[in-house]
């Protein structure tokens, strides 16, 4: 999988641990970057705050974004990503426990690539993460990085 890696935006440490475990079980855990809230995710992607000076040519092949996040929520993060040419084309998968139609619609309207329900059953969760990893990191061709497009 080379330098393809995932940015996991998750505030719940349990969910983070479980997601990492599921990724690890499916061997797609090389260099997972974790952001604990929406602001940190944006800092990482735009090279600000404690990520100032980060090489912005290095972008995740997939962002796993929780919907409900402290400070800046998932939909707002998505909106800002899509508004910036640097990150506009990054594949984003919403990983959430919300089954609300309104969230689903809002997400897709903002240019979401995938909406995945977090199942309670960990086995199903592992399976979902496996499918996600295989599809977005192995099967799917990632778009050229924002810098190159510019």
């Amino acid at each position: 999988m080379g330098n393809k890696f995932i940015l996991l935006v998750e505030d719940n440490p349990d969910d983070e641990a479980l997601a990492l475990r599921a990724l690890k079980q499916n061997r797609i855990d090389n260099g997972v970057v974790v952001a604990r809230d929406g602001a940190e995710a944006l800092d990482y992607l735009f090279g600000k705050g404690r990520y100032a000076g980060r090489d912005l040519n290095v972008m995740p092949a997939l962002i796993l974004l929780d919907l409900k996040l402290p400070k800046i929520d998932g939909l707002e993060v998505l909106k800002q990503l899509r508004a910036n040419p640097l990150t506009a084309l990054l594949p984003v998968a919403m990983l959430t426990s919300s089954r609300e139609q309104s969230d689903l619609l809002a997400g897709y309207k903002l240019g979401l690539n995938s909406y995945i329900l977090k199942p309670v059953d960990f086995d199903q969760f592992t399976e979902a993460v496996r499918n996600l990893g295989v599809y977005w990191l192995a099967i799917n061709e990632t778009p050229p990085s924002g810098r190159q497009v510019q």
């Binding site: 349990d14 969910d15 641990a17 479980l18 919907l67 426990s97 919300s98 089954r99 977090k118 960990f122």
Partner: peptide
């Protein structure tokens, strides 16, 4: 309820599995 009540359940199930 949909969002918050399910999160701890996931932890219980996930760590049991672990």
């Amino acid at each position: 309820v949909s969002h918050d009540l399910r999160a701890p359940l996931r932890s219980i199930d996930g760590f049991s599995r672990a």
